[in-house]
């Protein structure tokens, strides 16, 4: 594909290249199933089923009545998994969207204006990048206090630098094109140049980064919940289910295997989608 491709053309070409990779398709199917389960099943099941305790049916094995069995409080693990998926995916997407918007503003300003503004903004981003992602999120939650809103803020802040860097890099490659000069010759405002002429042409790497960050966020939510800083019980969440199951993991391994496997599969599937998108959007592989 020539470097200038149309909206229609590019989506079609990307899809046809994406389809060629079996792993990427496996990832896409898995993610679709997860999304469907997370959004559709809660419509038919009551949220109460995920939190109400029933001591008459503790530690049920897999199968018979409860597909994934029940936990130490007699709650259906399958239902809890589904509601947990909904929280992970929704919080994941919400935080990534928030940090994408913030990162895009910072990266666009730094890349487009350059000079001292670029220097100041990117050095601040470097400070954030120097702190490990999870550690940064833990410190922010510890400072703000527990709760879904604070978790969301903490995760969003910790992702902003990675978006700022990607957006800035993409903008630097587009900025020098003649059509930007043509827009400047028209006296187009900087905001309009960025929104109409630069961002639409710099979107590829940003999409990939977004996908990969959703996976990372889901992992971070689970990690934080596992150490007790994320979503607190009784709200079903994969990480806190792991933590709850830890004491009985030798007697009842399915309690820990199911949420563990779900986290691993989800993160891997989203990463496969991200890798597939990266390959499909990479201009060097275009044919």
């Amino acid at each position: 594909m020539p470097k200038g491709a149309s909206k229609r053309g590019q989506v079609q070409m990307t899809w046809s290249r994406y389809r060629k990779s079996k792993l990427a398709m496996l990832g896409l199917v898995t993610v679709s199933v997860l999304f469907f389960a997370a959004l559709a099943i809660p419509l038919f099941k009551d949220y109460e089923m995920a939190i109400e305790q029933d001591f008459s049916s503790r530690y049920q094995p897999i199968g018979a009545g409860h597909i994934f069995g029940t936990d130490q409080f007699g709650r259906d693990i399958f239902i809890r998994m589904v509601f947990g998926a909904r929280i992970s995916l929704l919080v994941g997407i919400a935080t990534v969207s928030a940090s994408l918007v913030a990162g895009a503003f910072i990266g666009a300003a730094a890349g487009y204006y350059g000079g001292r503004l670029d220097e100041i903004l990117m050095r601040i981003m470097d400070v954030f990048l120097a702190i490990p992602n999870t550690l940064l999120a833990i410190s922010i939650v510890a400072a703000l206090g527990q709760g879904i809103t604070n978790l969301l803020i903490a995760l969003a802040i910790s992702q902003v630098p990675s978006f700022a860097r990607v957006v800035r890099a993409s903008i630097l490659t587009v900025k020098e094109q003649d059509y930007i000069e043509a827009a400047r010759a028209l006296g187009t405002s900087n905001a309009r140049i960025i929104a109409r002429h630069i961002l639409p042409n710099a979107i590829g790497p940003i999409i990939v980064q977004t996908t990969l960050n959703v996976a990372r966020t889901i992992l971070n939510i689970s990690s934080l919940s596992f150490v007790g800083l994320g979503i607190s019980p009784p709200t079903p969440e994969w990480g806190s289910m792991l933590a709850d199951a830890k004491p009985q993991m030798l007697q009842y391994p399915h309690l820990i295997l199911i949420p563990g496997a779900a986290i691993a599969i989800t993160v891997m599937a989203i990463n496969l989608v991200g890798d597939g998108l990266r390959d499909a959007l990479d201009p060097r592989l275009r044919n």
Partner: peptide, 12 residues
């Protein structure tokens, strides 16, 4: 411009 392709925004 000299290069008619690079001087036209490919997304428009």
């Amino acid at each position: 411009f000299q290069d008619p392709l690079s001087s036209l925004n490919p997304r428009m």
